[in-house]
Nucleic acid binder design. Sequence first.
DNA 1: GTGATAACCTGCTCGC
DNA 2: TGCGAGCAGGTTATCA
Length: 273
Amino acid sequence: MPELPEVETIRRSLGVRVAGRSVVDAWSHESSKFTPAVEVIGATFSGADRRGKYLLLGLEDHRELVIHLGMTGQLHLAGGATSSRLDERDPYVRAEWTLDGGSDVLSFRDVRRFGRLRVVPSGDYRSITTLHQLGPEPLGTDFAPEAFHRALKASNRRIKTQLLSQKPVAGVGNIYADEALWQARIYPARRSITRAEAACLHEAVVDVLQRGVDNGGTTLRDYRTFEGGEGDNQNHLSCYGRAGLPCPRCAAQLQSRVWDARTTTFCPRCQPR
DNA sequence: GTGATAACCTGCTCGC
DNA sequence: TGCGAGCAGGTTATCA
């Protein structure tokens, strides 16, 4: 499932491929999650940016095409204009944009339809609540340990649930939350942490996300890079998805539990209550 | 305002 | 072999 490293990996490839290209035609699935795709017909892409897990495709008419990949979203640029025949279209493609020249098609494929598209005025995210209220970028200079601790203290929810809320910090999903909490030795269901623990978690969040970016993202099932390849970070995970296996740090058996409808893997010895 | 929970969605795995 | 149940999880809506 695309989290910050996966979206960033896609952004880096996508930006250089679509900048300066105009959209001459578009198609969308009938769901209102995807119909905004056709609003960009006639516009020209200016580049690709990212906030948290949101991909922001700038348009030269001062708008942005905001893409959330959800659980299974994939973006792909294909040559050869293969999209015109409805009966030949991949049944899981939810939107397509035909670029100038007519031979290149940018497609958004999303098997489980958890993804969504939106077109907004540049920088105006008020209509997208989560994006509007998004916490600081973890790999940017605004993400500071003190503010992170204050944000975590502001709520009584479980620490992991708070990380997934995107408010204390942007871009963390289930995989990197488990990895960061394991690295920081913090029990995921804790409802408060000390300043020192928050500083440790801050460092772990930055570390696991940067490692994810460096490894091209984590491919467990659906995630693919813009070129269609797999990431490599799944080969570097210490905790997520390893329930029943020995902890790489202390060899205790990693455990799995469900909190707030999210499966969480943790080490009962390294991450005590 | 806050926290918890259900719903959305479909492929895959597992047990019978 | 085939079928049904359960699971995966990011975001949004709803309820207490």
